[in-house]
Nucleic acid binder design. Sequence first.
DNA 1: CTGAAAGCGCTTACAG
DNA 2: CTGAAAGCGCTTACAG
Lengths: 345, 345
Amino acid sequence: MTTASIKEVARIAGVSIATVSRCMNSPDKVSEKTRIKVQDAILKTGYTPNTLAQSFRRGRTNVVMVVLPSIGDPFFTDVMRGIRNAADAKGYSIIINETQFNTMTADEIAAMVVSRQTDGIILLASMSPFGTEVLSAKSHRALPIVVGCETVAPELTVFPSVHIDNVAAAKEATNYLISRGHTRIGLICGAANSLLTKDREFGYRAAMHEAELGIEDGWVVNGDLTIEGAIRATRSLLNHSHRPTAVFCTTDEMAIGCLHSAKSVGMRVPADLSVMGFDDTRYAAVTDPPLTTISQPATEIGERVMYRLCREIEQGRQSSSGDNRPELVAHRLIVRESVAEPAAE
Amino acid sequence: MTTASIKEVARIAGVSIATVSRCMNSPDKVSEKTRIKVQDAILKTGYTPNTLAQSFRRGRTNVVMVVLPSIGDPFFTDVMRGIRNAADAKGYSIIINETQFNTMTADEIAAMVVSRQTDGIILLASMSPFGTEVLSAKSHRALPIVVGCETVAPELTVFPSVHIDNVAAAKEATNYLISRGHTRIGLICGAANSLLTKDREFGYRAAMHEAELGIEDGWVVNGDLTIEGAIRATRSLLNHSHRPTAVFCTTDEMAIGCLHSAKSVGMRVPADLSVMGFDDTRYAAVTDPPLTTISQPATEIGERVMYRLCREIEQGRQSSSGDNRPELVAHRLIVRESVAEPAAE
DNA sequence: CTGAAAGCGCTTACAG
DNA sequence: CTGAAAGCGCTTACAG
């Protein structure tokens, strides 16, 4: 298992290295007799092509980078599963880049592609808007980037994307709370500059507005996309002088924190407080009470994003791009047991 | 942002490409004047070295592969965070390989290193034992592999590893249940060939044996490391003719399923059934009731595994290996509210 | 169908 | 301190 090279194989098979290479890459261009000889030599030597040399020669790595805000969130885990399914099928490896806001600038990310560390990028993360440098790069030569989730930032709309209609889904969630009789509805969302939940906040506001319900100061709280953050946010919501009877959390992860926070101060869910989630992660069905939420087809999103990226990579620099309209996938309201009518006052 | 190469930079700076290369890799070998000229040229051209060419030339990728059974489990998420912290510090990228049993053989994995796709491997997964081929490779030239978690399979003990003392921790967990008065204690563990929970099962059996408590047929159930699996396992446990009063789940993930399963058939936890977890993931504190569990320093494990791997990689083929004794890290019993005395019968 | 040869973009002894 | 040159292991037109 010492590093047999293509030369060694060629020597043993009694052919040129070009022929060995062809046997592996375009076997149809080689006579059967030769192919067998080479095959034997490969087995005998235990030859594996040096991937580094191949990538270098071919000018591509077959590696794709996924940028996301938190690998911990089970929703992203499911998206990742879809991405990896597709990546495996297409022969790509995945590098994960967990990026908090501003940790890595868009230009740094773009540099990874330019410097050939990756063939393309999947953006699941909210991030600081792209700078002009990337945009011009985009116009010059197509940067293979596909966005999963929202594309709120106008800079991102130049890239293809795959996601649910977050605005519509959040409206639906809010309307469901309204339909159950709630009028005082709080929102726990991501940070102000989070692309992930911006559309959901927008949908919530739109639904409240259409129902002619007011949103008081302090009803929209940043839960930081984490359990801990949501616990704090819930505390703040429950201490509000005009306390909401229902809380819409823009991720299930935060809904878990909200549930815990409410129960820990003795409130019953949903009798005293209704809680609505978003994502339908695998925990949503086993919280206590089970969570009413919006289901996203996470794995499907992941698969479609990855396949879309493959197309971008394959098209390469040629056609600057064709159809960049977002691919929308379907969401679904999942009614479980965390929402009820508000208690009479 | 067209791909400026080192030649272009050299031309503009009026030096040789060797000098440009030296400016980036060993700037102390270059005069200040030259360095500044080159610096300017780099800025002017927006030059980024072609990573592919560098890796090829240097013979290393700066990529490390992590093999794990389930990225979804929040425990592994935390381990991954530690791995990535250390990897970032050391300039490595991470490729994740989620491997069910037998999906990818050990030889295939070893091939990834041999074919230069990665510089080294972190094994967090249970997997089919290594074949002779890898082992001989190991003896010939050190294969840079480090094992996180258990190294139950004798084949794996040749590799360095970082983990808690799973046997001792599981004994401690079981003894805690015994100390609270339980005598009928069930176990929900991983699949029979899972390296992940084998030691924990062993610790449980040892504790029961030392306390002279019997383990009836059907008290040790495979929960598949998933919530769903644990729900089924719990159902089976609760239907046992001689039902346990306490259940030790070898992961928190399964404890979440167990909790849900028990409550969904109307049992109160811990009044009617005590539940013990393992891992202390971020969900453990917010389950209902909060989970009594064993805490593993997941992030620390990840960091130490990665640093250990770096050492293996750096030592390279030279010293075949030095000290391969496992690095043990400390676990801790975390008492919350999911365990109580068994109800009087 | 096959081989000789060029070249991908770097790095690094080797001279000077 | 700097440059000319070799070479890392492949792939791929180009001849034949």
